[in-house]
Nucleic acid binder design. Structure first.
Lengths: 202, 202
DNA sequence: GTCTATAAACGGATAGAC
DNA sequence: GTCTATCCGTTTATAGAC
């Protein structure tokens, strides 16, 4: 399963991983094609042989394919027969574990979403994914309120609070830290579910 | 009180406001000195006459002086005789209202903290402020747990969750939106305090 | 105090040798 | 498939005219 550090051929995934990592460290505009190429053992010129569309396309691929991974998990969870509490907990875990498993892509999501919104061709596909993602969170909260499992908090603010807290994990998470992704997701889920708990029931 | 749109002289504050705004829109590396100069009605060359240290110093000033505003409020609140719940609520309000009153500086805090950490001269002073800020939040939570006003949640994770959610406000807040800063801070504070509420007391 | 001109460096992308 | 060389536009920062 383990591959040689220096494989003969550079795969698309190698390039996206390298791009995400350098975007995380220096930001999109602070990153040069030479930085990314170096990470996969190439020069800038050679990189264009393996990936079309240049730097803008590289950012779009990192963000969209990163979002698709989380979206796939979340849309599946939403079709399972779960209570809103259970469903929310599973979604939070899927989200945060995805972030901690691929911190570079998560950080790019946080720091470069603004950048991709200014790239005309990449803008719309990204917005579609991002809005779908937020809508999933929002819908679970609304279901929970509707069936009176959750308190009637302000749904938009609560959803943004969750998104902010979860996205921020990619900023402070370190693989060698005290907690892993699953543990962090449990702590976070406990917080949100405690905040959503009804107190007016006898 | 209202000043002419085009004052004869450009103040330091005018420049910092302009820089924060353009950093928010295009990011530090995506911003040119000409962008900032244009916003205050100058050319790039003229800007250097009013502000020393170039673009790196401009970023440091925006972030540090923005943080100092919030830090000033928060350190004052921490010296008042308040219960942890009241103190936390006041801190959240100070933080979020500061963000909504100066969204550009808030967004720069979110998006460019990574950038400033790579500028050797600006790094340490910024880290000091940022850590002080986080320590204030942490300390209030710890006090509340110690006096058994709050549940014993995981303090580091809870603190990071709050920071993420509050910082993220600068990303989604719009002045023309449904809620103003004070209202958002109330909703947020309600969420955190509900999550911190003890349930084991009879 | 503001401008224009310009120096010097850098970055994205391509062409063509090997 | 990878490299080097290069084109061309852009950017920071400075110098000097007005």
């Amino acid at each position: 399963m383990a591959r040689k550090p220096s494989a003969q051929t550079v795969s698309r995934e190698d390039i996206l991983k390298a791009a995400a990592l350098v975007f995380q460290q220096r930001g999109y505009h602070g990153t040069t094609m030479a930085d990314i190429a170096e990470r996969v053992g190439l020069t800038a010129g050679s990189l264009y042989h393996h990936f079309d569309g240049g730097k803008p396309n590289l950012l779009a691929a990192v963000l969209n394919e990163g979002l698709d991974v989380v979206l796939g998990k979340i849309e599946q969870i939403m079709q399972e027969p779960l209570t809103p509490s259970e469903m929310l907990r599973r979604m939070i875990e899927a989200h945060i574990v995805s972030v901690t498993e691929n911190v570079a892509a998560g950080a790019a999501m946080v720091f470069e979403s603004r950048t991709i919104l200014e790239l005309p061709d990449a803008r719309e596909p990204f917005i579609r994914r991002r809005d779908t993602f937020e809508r999933c969170y929002r819908e679970v909260i609304e279901r929970g309120i509707a069936c009176e499992e959750f308190r009637a908090i302000d749904v938009p603010v609560f959803t943004k609070a969750m998104l902010g807290a979860h996205n921020w994990v990619s900023v402070w998470y370190h693989p060698a830290g005290r907690l892993d992704g699953a543990q962090i997701s449990r702590e976070m889920a406990d917080v949100w579910l405690a905040a959503l708990k009804r107190t007016d029931v006898r």
